[in-house]
Design a protein around this nucleic acid. Sequence first.
DNA 1: CTATGTCAGTTGCAAATGCAACTATTTTAA
DNA 2: TTAAAATAGTTGCATTTGCAACTGACATAG
Lengths: 215, 215
Amino acid sequence: MSETRIFDNITNEEINQMKNCFKAVSRKYIAGETINNIEEGSLGIVVSGVVEIIRFDFDGNRTILERINENGIFGKLFFSKIDEGDVQIICSTDCEIMFIDYDHLTKQCHNACNHHSTLIRNMLSIVSEKSIKLSNRVEVLSQRTLRKKLITYFNMIAKEAGKKNIIIPFSLSNLSDYLCVDRSAMLREMKKMREEGLIDSHAKKVTILYDQSIY
Amino acid sequence: MSETRIFDNITNEEINQMKNCFKAVSRKYIAGETINNIEEGSLGIVVSGVVEIIRFDFDGNRTILERINENGIFGKLFFSKIDEGDVQIICSTDCEIMFIDYDHLTKQCHNACNHHSTLIRNMLSIVSEKSIKLSNRVEVLSQRTLRKKLITYFNMIAKEAGKKNIIIPFSLSNLSDYLCVDRSAMLREMKKMREEGLIDSHAKKVTILYDQSIY
DNA sequence: CTATGTCAGTTGCAAATGCAACTATTTTAA
DNA sequence: TTAAAATAGTTGCATTTGCAACTGACATAG
């Protein structure tokens, strides 16, 4: 468990001492499994695997609200309270999740947790990263056209990967749920972009041919 | 300056001691002014007023990416790195902004800053709130239709205000930039909703008549 | 007082997108 | 190894949305 970023710079002995304080519980999930019964004040930390926050609308739309990788966090605390549809937390790969008591983390502990402040510092770094990810997400969703959503998303992936031939980390069907557009409309747009020579693509493999500096 | 949340539970003397450490600089801006020359590692804290992060697209669209109220934070650190368009930080009201050195905040300080850990704790709380705000933003933008964007937004404002007759904190023109839709299309949709008896509205005053439990 | 600008509101028309209903291909599970 | 699912891809048609170009109301500055 010590390889989670939240415990960076804390010794194993200390971690074990703290586990009681935080009511830390680890659980493994298999791909496709739903994470249920999260308590109000509980914080989930993705130790390994990928977790997706998915909303199923009343009118049948599926939306991937958030995709959380290793060292990412989730919890009712971070949820939008306005969400009326059915929001589920689904493991898209095999996962190990650690749950801790958030209140205990943020408040000063009276026990012998010497490294409590280190923990909060680590937490700050993790939450900051979450903010940046969410900003990226807003950046993509704020684009007015399907093509610009795709281009913004491709640029993002390409920047992370440091190359122009990328492999989309979603099935194309899931990508449309992430971009919040119709799947067939998205595929049609990708076809157009292929025909116009902007990209090359086969299924999840996309090569960016357009000039990234213009977009 | 002590009334900023980042200094909660820290004495005035301590704050003054710390100001040097963090290279804290306060500046006042008037409504409409642009905040320029933010250094890479600098963090802006909105002491008073409202700041908007605005993107001007190559094709003339204006997008309000983020709206930051009192105690909110901004900075290049939190920006989407993929943003190629012209992104500006604009004070939508008179503002007082405090800039501090973020690296210094996150790293352990060797000076006599006793309450440094309190500061980090406060910062965690502020960044967490930013995450929640961004999640709400994603929630609105992820809606597939203009009407659902409006309803999700109205519900959000109504929930915050605790009542069904709300006053939109934007001009309607700015609201369309926030929802990332065309202004005339938005007004047309609001008109339809009025005609269908879902809402009552005159300019920025909106009364929710639909059953919020269905949306 | 007048001009200039911002804001709210409207509408016709064109373009983009969603919906539905398919086929073909690949993966997964029995 | 075969059947069932999931994924990728396509297309016609309906609907939604964006664009452009207005009007009228109101506020602000000179």
